[in-house]
Structures are given as C-alpha cells and as structure tokens.
C-alpha cells in the first residue's frame, strides 16, 4: 500500500470519527467541539501507530455503501427464517434435524468473505463455525436451511455487490 493511500485512509478516518462525535454528542459549544477534535486526532494517531490502517480495500468508510441494497434483501431473508425457527421452537415435537455442510467461497476480498460468513450466522437456522481461505463450514438447524444456502443465492448477491461499479 502506497503512502498516498494511507494518507487518504487517515483523512477518511478523521472525517468519519468527527461525524460520529457530532452525532453522539448533541452539544455544539466551542469547548466541546475542540475536545472532540482533540480526541479524534488522538484516536487516529494511536490507530496508525498500532498498524490498524492497512486494509486491503480502497476507503473502508465508503466501501460499505455498495452493500446497502444487499442489506435490505438480507433483512427480508432474516424475517423469513426467523418465522421458520420460531415455528420449530413452538412445535411440541421439536422437529429439528441438525447437519454440517461445507460451502465454497467465490469472493475475492477479505471484507466480502467476512460479510458472507456474518450474514450466514445472522440468519437464524444457520451458523458458520469455521472460515477457511476458500470454504466455510456451516451448521444448519434443518435440511431446508442447508438447501437454501446450497442454491448459492446469497453467495451470488455478495459477489455481485462486491463488483458493483459505484464508489
């Protein structure tokens, strides 16, 4: 990563931390704004000394924007599988059939892989229990959840969002 990139990372970190401070504080007197600026600069210095600003993506604070349409689709999926798991819990017979499956990862970047594993875990009924370089092991509560993942719908959507043209 070039020096130029690291400079832009620091600038974007300062801007996003300052926006977070303004949003959480709610007071806009000069003293409090000055204290906020001071703490933002200290946090940036500490995180660059810890070597945290070496991410393999362009600018992380803007990168997540391309995943917003995917997130809206994901909330719909979460609601569907929540209703399924709630029905299984409330059924007196407890109709579960746990199984382990291994899925192939087709994403290139680390960030997209983490998004995929986290969305598998966020959906009730499936949990990612081991994340390797190109595969992820999934524990599923029932065969229907495993079948839903094997169709590769979520995988395709994340790969599509990763290669989106904007930002």
């Amino acid at each position: 990563m070039s020096k130029y990139d690291i400079f832009f990372h620091k600038i974007s970190l300062i801007i996003s931390l300052a926006l977070l401070w303004i949003m959480l504080s709610g007071h806009y007197t000069p003293l409090l704004l000055l204290l906020g600026l001071l703490s933002v600069i200290i946090v940036t210095i500490i995180s660059s000394r810890m070597g945290l600003i070496t991410f393999d993506q362009p600018i992380l604070q803007l990168y997540f924007i391309r995943f917003i349409p995917y997130g809206i689709w994901l909330i719909g999926q979460i609601m569907k599988s929540n209703i399924d798991v709630c029905k299984r819990i409330l059924n007196p017979n407890l109709p579960i059939n746990p199984c382990l499956i291994t899925l192939h990862l087709s994403q290139a970047s680390t960030f997209a892989k983490v998004v995929y594993a986290n969305s598998i875990t966020l959906t009730p009924g499936t949990i990612s229990i081991d994340l390797e370089d190109s595969s992820v092991e999934v524990h599923s509560l029932s065969a229907t959840g495993a079948e839903g993942l094997k169709t590769g719908n979520m995988d395709k959507k994340i790969t599509h969002a990763e290669a989106a043209p904007y930002v």
Binding site: M79, V85, C86, I89, P124
Partner: peptide
C-alpha cells in the same frame, strides 16, 4: 446458538 440468534435478530 440457533435459538439465541432469534433473540439477537428478531
């Protein structure tokens, strides 16, 4: 863990 993720999401 599956039952706990119902609490965390829904």
């Amino acid at each position: 863990l599956h039952a706990a993720s119902v609490i965390d999401t829904l």
